[in-house]
Amino acid sequence: MSLFILKIIGIIAMFVDHYHYIIGGNVILNIVGRIAFPIFAFTLSEGYVHTRNLKKYLYRLFIFAIGIQIPSVIFGHKYPINIFFTLFLGLLTIYILNFKKKYIKNQIFLWIIKIILMSFILFISQWLEMDYGAYGILLIVNFNISRNSKFCILMNFLILNTFNLLFPDIFKLTKTQFFSIVSLIFIFMYNGKKGRSMKYFFYLFYPIHFLILEGIRNIR
């Protein structure tokens, strides 16, 4: 399964989830929607590995995050800080995690700085109540540090979801988030190929699908 197919599955699951959030329906829609973010977190991690220009990748995510959030602020919609901010901070976190400089001889000092910066990002993502918050950042980090081991991805995923199940007030996510583990069925089918390019499709689909769903809600 190529990265393109994975993203399509993620987009469909996201649409179903937001349909439930905006319009309503059976809770099964919300459960199906749980597989969306892990897929996007995984594709982001793969993007970090394969991108030719990390700065442009970060810049693109940040600009779209701001652009998409502006209408919500102007019109007073009660949407959380959008997912692009979470993806941006997740990408920034794995950059910090993998940051290396030969001229910094004191590796302990370097890791102290890394831990401080990553902890600050986790705090900010929760404090600002970003979509998926610290949970989302940690999931992105999991896919990065465990990239070469499906077993480690699975175990870290289970630990993270079990923690949320036992202490839902920490991440402020519902217990249905545990069903996101199903996303690994699709992620583990990834064949390492990019597939068709859809560089800007998701960026554009994200705000457009909200407009579509708001339109459906208003005409019902």
Rank of each mutant, 00 (worst) to 15 (best):
I9T: 06
F99P: 07
I187Q: 10
D131V: 07
Q126K: 14
F84Y: 13
H209Q: 15
L87T: 10
I31E: 07
T162L: 08
Y57S: 11
Y21L: 12
T43K: 04
N191H: 11
K7N: 11
N26S: 10
N53D: 12
Y57K: 12
K100R: 15
I140Q: 00
Y135L: 10
S2F: 03
L165K: 02
Y190F: 03
G192E: 04
V182Q: 04
I74K: 03
F42H: 05
Q126Y: 08
I208E: 08
I104S: 05
I159M: 13
N144W: 01
F202I: 00
N164I: 05
F88V: 08
T51R: 04
H209S: 13
Y203C: 00
F151Y: 15
R60A: 13
L44I: 07
F178L: 13
S146E: 01
G33W: 05
F4I: 04
F4N: 09
I96H: 05
N144E: 08
G47F: 01
F62Q: 12
I219S: 11
L91H: 01
W111K: 06
I112S: 06
Y190S: 00
I74W: 05
C152F: 15
W127I: 09
Y135N: 10
P38L: 00
I153Y: 07
G192D: 01
S2Y: 05
I31M: 06
Y59L: 15
Y48Q: 05
P207L: 06
N161H: 08
I137P: 01
L97S: 01
G24P: 06
Y59E: 12
I212Q: 10
F64H: 12
Y95I: 05
F62E: 11
L92R: 09
F120A: 14
I219E: 04
N144L: 01
F37E: 04
F202Q: 00
S180Q: 08
R196Q: 12
I187C: 04
N82G: 02
I39Y: 05
I153V: 12
F163A: 12
K105F: 11
M130N: 01
L173N: 10
I208C: 11
S119M: 03
Y21A: 14
K78Q: 14
K194A: 14
V182I: 15
G133T: 04
L6Q: 00
I68N: 03
F178Q: 06
I185M: 03
P71A: 02
F167W: 06
P71Y: 01
F85A: 03
C152A: 15
Y19E: 05
F64W: 12
I116R: 03
F99R: 08
L29C: 11
K55W: 15
F186K: 00
G215P: 00
